[in-house]
């Protein structure tokens, strides 16, 4: 597919007319914020009835963004699906002008992209001050070698999460990531240890306590194990911070990248973002 695009680009560059039966149409609009915003409007008008607001999953059709595995990832795969529908399912051919379809494509891909790939409004520099100051984030999280270890390292968070995921992590209860579930155990000798379970099976449990110490137990040594049901992560940053501070914090996290992940985002059948 890439090769045929290359050839048609080459032909266009040589001032020739591309063949009428071009295998792969090209996105003529780019992926800038204007296209994303325009796509958002068309998406909400056309797609949300089935796929839910912002593609978060509707009653009649699956989510288009989030942590599930997607079969249609590339621009052209999504374009063709919207243009032609999926035979045998409720997904119709939409009959929109091609440019509007491209706008929807750009919007869906922006929603899936990691936060660092999209335009996150806000003052990242001020967000860094909120992160280390009022937000109190360093107490639990590490950033480039500084901070706590009871929460995940955020040094590369902008490349690891979608913007939506990032915002939800700051404001909503989300599933607790593996290795961070709160746990309290009482040993047979009466000692109580509280922390997070880095791992657990039917016979052993590995706990990181709130003083950065690891405790390794055979379960035969424990009298009681109580698993926490909610994450240690506060979820009220939109309340505890001013709207400006919250926006700037999200911008700072969205820009926080050390290594780019998911560079294969054009591939089919990869895990989508």
């Amino acid at each position: 597919m890439l090769r045929s695009i290359g050839i048609s680009l080459l032909l266009a560059g040589a001032n020739c007319i591309a063949p009428a039966q071009a295998a792969s149409p090209n996105n003529p609009l780019g992926t800038g914020p204007e296209a994303v915003a325009a796509g958002h409007v068309i998406f909400n008008r056309t797609c949300t009835a089935c796929h839910g607001t912002d593609g978060a999953e509707g009653e009649r059709a699956p989510a288009l963004v989030g942590d599930r595995r997607f079969f249609r990832l590339s621009e052209n795969a999504i374009f063709d699906t919207i243009k032609n529908g999926i035979l045998g399912t409720a997904m119709p051919a939409l009959g929109l002008p091609d440019d509007d379809i491209w706008r929807i494509v750009v919007f869906i891909r922006a929603m899936r992209a990691s936060a660092s790939d999209v335009d996150v409004p806000g003052d990242a520099e001020h967000g860094a001050a909120v992160f280390s100051g009022k937000g109190g984030c360093l107490k639990c999280h590490m950033l480039l070698g500084q901070g706590g270890i009871i929460g995940p390292d955020l040094s590369n968070i902008g490349a690891q999460m979608t913007l939506q995921h990032l915002r939800e992590s700051l404001t909503q209860a989300r599933p607790i990531p593996i290795g961070y579930r709160p746990v309290k155990v009482v040993t047979r000798s009466g000692e109580t240890v509280e922390g997070i379970a880095k791992n657990e099976d039917g016979f052993s449990i590995q706990i990181l306590d709130f003083h950065d110490k690891l405790h390794l137990y055979d379960k035969s040594e424990l009298r009681q194990i109580v698993h926490g049901t909610t994450s240690l992560m506060p979820r009220n940053y939109d309340q505890a911070l001013t709207p400006g501070e919250y926006q700037d914090l999200a911008a700072m996290l969205g820009h926080q990248v050390t290594v780019k992940l998911h560079v294969k985002d054009q591939g089919e059948g990869e895990v989508g973002r």
Partner: peptide, 19 residues
């Protein structure tokens, strides 16, 4: 939790100092 032999309860979990 399963019931355990007394001899096993002598085994103490390690409280770890990582320094």
């Amino acid at each position: 939790m399963k019931r355990l032999a007394l001899t096993l309860s002598l085994a103490l979990a390690s409280s770890l100092c990582a320094q």
